[in-house]
Design a protein around this nucleic acid. Structure first.
Lengths: 321, 321
DNA sequence: GCAGCTCACAAGCCCTGGTTGTGGCTCGAC
DNA sequence: GTCGAGCCACAACCAGGGCTTGTGAGCTGC
């Protein structure tokens, strides 16, 4: 990471995009509740920061230079990500007495939901209050059953009675180790029984990830005694870091480690035999008709986007360590 | 767009991610060249901004809360985008006497190259100076031929002699109009001849987009007299905005307008008959062996990522107008 | 020629975000 | 038990960024 000192802050980027759209500094300022002078100064310092002339100031207004046009497009990408973050924050705050209460498992909340929420917001307008609660799949199901959430998103094969569900995406779990681990060098696949007999870093019981893992191992290596996990953590990120620190192999969602695999910080271990580590991400609601209103919109968005954008977006996430 | 006031600035996000990784405020501060107090204050104000407790401060260090873990993941997405922007800025600055001179067409530069450059940088380290020049396809080819660029990226079917090329991705052009346009309401497809006979907002001659369009129309409707374009602009963004403002239909890359189509700001018009508006995005270099060194790395990255990430990333771009 | 729009320059003010200095707390070593 | 080394928080101080208001200059069009 370590952003160089040439990247303007979010406000300046937003302002730049607005100037590009409106076509004048003063006009952009008016939209932002700023004076023309303030905008002018900000743009000037942004240009100084970037080191390239971005705007062609004329007496008729201000237009982008070629480089400016490029930058604006790139900036839009940053702002889009920030917008997702914003949607997520608003949901987590849950201040505006939200009409829509959503509960989601960690995996969904971490990697998919922000995009859905951002989209929901552009569709329904910013007034649509969404309250988001993040729990493991089991607890999410309980919340929806208890009526404390209108809509839930869970992973894993089982569901308590009293819930209806629709699959919104499919996720794949993979086994990863740090490059120093002996499995990283193996050219042959690791046997399912060997994996089953190894102490792993895992999510806690009750999480969808853990359940899928346990079932797959039970099915593929029923005779192997499973050791106790070397660590049980409740956050994907924490597991990822424990693995990076050498705590042992872990089984994680592809989307969570894709970038680490690409950059070589983690190595994906092939497993012999048919170990089914796919799992479905599902939207759930109390038994009965598909919910109406914003809940229905969110469900639709989830189904539309999950397949197309879900995993792909993750690929563009940058390095951390 | 219009980011709400709950989003911390990039530095705070970066700091938050670092705190999460390092596990202590002071430790993160050391990495940043800041005092523990400064980090503490920043995190406190970030929490106030977000409205949610993000960190669990203990005497042994500082760990993330559940909400914090979510936010950090989302923040990573923002930082990844910022990192791409950063890579692009560095390339456009072209200050550090770059060993690698790249020329790219607008389409490639706008939508694909930042990701490639960011990736290149994580692979080769930040010292790899890249100089980026953005021109239309014709000019890019000329630059590479003249030896002024080591590597070029162009779209469109033709190439001057003396260049070798490899296809890195395929792009699709689409016809778009604003929702008010009469074509937007048509349920039947527009005939190729009708499109050919309509004044469009287009890129200038010499651009790959324009060339593909002209050829496709000539092939599909050879007898139709083509009117002069209603506008000729050199930037995709400018065309997009002209169309939004009602200047007429335009033919643009899918990736450039995908989000507008999703949100309904623009409507995609179906064209009858076989109008082939696909085009290949190609990496080019002076005739001879595939270039070595960083140029080779960039080519590889482009081929790896283009198919997978290229268009998908665009889908997550947020609204503008 | 004036109204209306554009942008730029200058002076002043406030508050953000950094610093140093200090203190409280807990853990681990001796 | 005591001391040192971490960790964090609170307080006072200082500099500079970023905003405002006030002003001027240039082009366009009625």
């Amino acid at each position: 990471m370590a952003l160089s000192a040439h990247v303007p802050d979010l406000t300046s980027l937003e302002l730049l995009v607005t100037v590009a759209r409106v076509g004048s500094l003063g006009g952009a300022g008016r939209e932002f509740g700023l004076t023309q002078q303030a905008v002018s100064a900000r743009m000037r310092s942004a240009e100084a920061l970037v080191g390239v002339r971005l705007l062609r100031r004329g007496v008729r207004g201000t237009a982008l230079t070629d480089e400016g046009a490029m930058l604006v497009d790139w900036a839009r990408g940053v702002l889009a990500a920030a917008d997702e973050l914003d949607a997520a924050i608003t949901a987590v705050r849950g201040d505006r007495d939200g009409r829509l209460d959503v509960a989601a498992s960690f995996t969904v909340a971490e990697f998919l939901l922000p995009g859905w929420l951002a989209r929901l917001r552009t569709e329904l307008g910013p007034e649509t209050g969404v309250n988001l609660v993040v729990r493991n799949s089991e607890q999410v199901a309980a919340l929806v059953l208890a009526g404390e959430a209108d809509l839930g998103f869970v992973e894993g094969p089982t569901l308590p009675d009293g819930l209806d569900a629709v699959t919104v995406a499919t996720d794949q779990l993979v086994v990863v180790v740090p490059p120093e681990h002996r499995w990283a060098r193996r050219r042959d696949a690791v046997a399912a029984a060997e994996l089953a007999g190894t102490a792993l870093v895992t999510r806690e019981r009750g999480s969808g990830t853990r359940l899928v893992l346990d079932r797959a191992l039970d099915a593929a290596a029923p005779d192997t005694t499973r050791p106790t996990p070397s660590l049980e953590l409740s956050a994907t990120t924490a597991i990822r870091q424990a693995v990076l620190a050498g705590a042992g192999p872990a089984v994680l969602s592809t989307v969570a480690v894709q970038d680490d695999i690409e950059t070589g910080r983690l190595v994906r271990v092939r497993i012999a035999g048919e170990l089914d580590l796919r799992r479905e991400l599902r939207g759930i609601w109390p038994e009965g008709p598909v919910p109406a209103g914003p809940a229905r919109s969110l469900l639709r968005i989830a189904r539309q986007r999950a397949g197309r954008n879900g995993t792909a977006r993750m690929g563009s996430r940058a390095a951390t360590a």
